[in-house]
Amino acid sequence: MKNFIVLLCIGSSLFSYAQSGIIHYKAQMNLQHQKEFIEEIKKDETVTMSVKQQIINLYKNAEPDYYELHFNANESYYFKDESLKKEEGYKMGSKAGQSPYYTNANSNAIIEDNSIFNFVSQEPLDWKITNERIKINGIECYKATSTEILYSRQGHFYDRDVVAWFAPEYSVKFGPKMYSGLPGLVIEVERKEFTITATKINLNPDKKRLKIKPVGKDEKITSQKETYQKIAEMMEYRKKN
């Protein structure tokens, strides 16, 4: 009987540090970006006045987007929460993206579930951590920077500086979108167009509430390079027609 009790204690301690959580994020378009875009479109002479006005209105009434990040020890799933969206026609969002992301730490894979290209594997970002830190809600956050390389629909590469504030005291290596791989929970990500901020942190939640949708082993996964190729081909095709 004594042996049994000892075994039970060891057993429970093995399971007590379940590293899981649900993080709620809110993304908003940056005011500066909004202003710049409106200035640009005002100058554009190829667009008619009425279309201009419509685009300006869309930008001025841009709404935030809401996302959730669910994770356990090895994987995470990041997706948009559509339930908070008001249903009244087309609204401009935050520009922080629509796709869900599945991340597997064991295979080092970050896979975007893209509406056009289906599953696309994303390259992990190379983070530099600075000495700058700040307290957010009593949580010490460090500043990390990186550069994201993107491919435009016009068929050229461009890059964007990314700033992430993360909290080392919460040892979570997952983050929103492909902004993961940092030594701590991502509290905020800022890029030229948008800012993604954690609004609610829920650690060790009821296991039943975790929604992680892994990418099946036999699913076809496209590399980022292949998608660039496809975009270039599509642009070529459009030019011809």
Binding site: C141, E188, L203
Partner: peptide
């Protein structure tokens, strides 16, 4: 279970 509401943005 730990639940934290974040009251501000930097």
């Amino acid at each position: 279970e730990v639940v934290l509401e974040m009251p501000m943005v930097v």
